[in-house]
Design a binder for these strands. Structure first.
Length: 504
RNA sequence: GGGUUGUUAGCUCAGCUGGUAGAGCAGCGGACUCUUAAUCCGUAGGUCGACAGUUCGAAUCUGUCACAGCCCA
């Protein structure tokens, strides 16, 4: 790939509307400072509504409340000798009233030529219109930033999905729903951070560039460090670094940050996405499931006010205890009497069944892997209410601690909601020799052609050899959690700037 | 990667079985001192995603490509 696709020249999409606004800007430049930065904004629309909406018209006007407010002009209604405008700031909208009487004819005439989308500052006093709407009677008005491009249509807003994602600022300007989604995202992350900090967790940052990609089964992005002449990988997971910190004595750690996986795009996948991973020493996977339920409930309550979530026509109840089922229990529960225990324990039967369904199976799959594949084909998408699937086969869980009674399975869970995996956790494998054997098995799989199999990480083994206390850990896909709590159908609706193809 | 739908004015959308482009908003000019997507009158604005093909004639039919949405892997 060359750099010829990169845009180094301005977009050539001038039109008559933009030309007219450029002409207005050029007149502003002639008159003085075209982009003044000396307006002292003192008030926010939302605060003014909160403080004064309930007051009676007469009482409010007797108070003569002086305000200084600024924002983007979203609506404009000119009526000869007086005008109304609606401006929008980060907290909301408020109406301005500009008249020849108070603001003066010169100011009002100038205002008439301003455009929707312009950013203006206004000083004046609050009053209520005859319909009772809180409004600023403007005495001074200043154009702070000329907008050269017309906004999307004022009533329908931006409906073009592509433009919504490529030019996110337009959606943020015109869609309250979009603003609310990203404010909810911030609140969700803040709540989770507080939840863990309150419980004695330490927030840390570990490398985004890894010499060995590890901690998950996925294809990495590759990059190169020139000075060290060294191949590096954008991380696919922070797991192995966070557990090194537990070895170091940070017994409760978490990190909220980006992971990168070089895979396809879909309504559930973006190449960079946000995960929280957290680790706590002297706990096991059952404790982690309890903690997860509590965290999800608390987060939903913080964002929505309650723990019953509406998602795309489903009612998801986070208030009740989450189901906890093994893979075969889940298959039985959602397909009663479809399979016998003998069949689910019969490799030949499972392979034949998967063949019928066209499922992708690896020839090396053991019984556990085949059961998992059958679960994914038949049951996963039916797990609408929050459900922990527990006790995953060791062959697909190379970093999880084995069950003491049955080493073929691990103390691991995945949480499913609305048929989607949203979290993954386990009792950590802290036996360095077992971990070394598991890495070796992964390397054999990689050599057999599995591009997503893990590498052998000798430094991580060395860390385990110093002693990782018994620990439980978990990762939660933040984007998918935000989708759930904001009723968003696509991951692109909850990532401010989702990955897109280059524009032509 | 496969299937499917879409791409027309700055924005939101019409445009019939093929006859050469329309509305609303935004803009510009005018009227209007309590509007709420203000209203009313006038006016300007387009390589119909790109390239081929069929045809006397293509926004419309066919093919390829680009981008996007949805479904599937």
């Amino acid at each position: 790939m060359t750099n010829e696709n990169q845009q180094t020249t301005p977009l050539q999409d001038e039109n008559q509307l933009i030309a007219e606004r450029r002409e207005k800007l050029s007149k502003l430049r002639e008159q003085g400072v075209a982009f003044p930065n000396d307006f002292d904004r003192k008030d926010m629309a939302g605060d003014l509504h909160a403080t004064h909406d309930a007051k009676e018209k007469e009482a409010l006007e007797a108070d003569k409340v002086e305000v200084a407010i600024a924002g983007r002009m979203m609506l404009k209604r000119v009526m000869g000798k007086a005008s109304f405008a609606t401006i929008q700031d980060m907290s909301g909208r408020i109406q301005l009233y500009i008249s020849n009487d108070i603001a003066g004819m010169e100011t009002h005439d100038a205002f008439k030529h301003w455009d929707m989308g312009d950013i203006i500052g206004a000083r004046g006093t609050l009053f209520k219109t005859k319909t009772g709407e809180l409004t600023v009677q403007v005495s001074e008005l200043k154009l702070l930033t000329k907008s050269l491009r017309p906004l999307p249509e004022k009533f329908h807003g931006l409906t073009d999905q592509e433009q919504k994602y490529r030019q996110r600022y337009l959606g943020l300007i015109t869609s309250e729903e979009t603003r609310n989604t990203f404010m909810a995202r911030s609140k969700i992350i803040q709540t989770i951070r507080d939840f863990l900090v309150e419980r004695g967790y330490l927030e840390v940052e570990t490398p985004m560039m890894h010499p060995i990609p590890g901690g998950a089964s996925a294809k990495p992005f590759t990059t190169h460090h020139n000075a060290l002449d060294m191949e590096l990988f954008l991380r696919i997971a922070p797991e192995l670094y966070l557990k090194r910190l537990v070895v170091g004595g940070f017994e409760k750690v978490f990190e909220i940050n980006r992971n990168f996986r070089n895979e396809g795009l879909s309504t559930r996948h973006n190449p960079e996405f946000t995960m929280i991973e957290f680790y706590e020493a002297y706990r096991d996977y059952r404790y982690m499931m309890d903690l997860t339920e509590e965290m999800f409930r608390e987060t939903a309550k913080a964002v929505l006010g309650h723990a019953v979530v509406q998602y795309q026509g489903h009612t998801i109840n986070l208030a009740q205890p989450f189901d906890r089922l093994t893979i075969t229990q889940a298959i039985h529960k959602y397909h009663p009497k479809r399979y016998s225990d003998e069949q689910l324990g019969d490799r030949v039967f499972l392979k034949a069944e998967l063949e019928k369904m066209g499922g992708n199976q690896h020839p090396t799959d053991g019984i556990g892997g085949l059961q998992l594949a059958l679960f994914e084909e038949t049951t996963e998408q039916l797990l609408i209410q929050p459900t922990f699937i527990i006790d995953y086969p060791a062959e697909v869980s190379p970093l999880a601690r084995s069950n003491d009674a049955n080493p073929g399975i691990t103390e691991r869970f995945e949480l499913f909601i609305v048929g989607r995996e949203i979290a993954n956790g386990f009792s950590e494998l802290n036996d360095p020799e077992d971990q070394s054997d598991r890495f070796m098995a992964q390397v054999r799989q990689k050599e057999a052609g599995d591009a997503e199999a893990m590498h052998y990480d000798a430094d991580y083994i060395r860390a385990l050899e110093f002693g990782l206390p018994p620990t439980a850990g978990e990762g939660i896909g933040i984007d998918r959690l935000v989708m759930l709590l904001t009723d968003s159908p696509s991951i692109r609706d909850v990532i401010l700037f989702p990955q897109m193809r280059l524009e032509d």
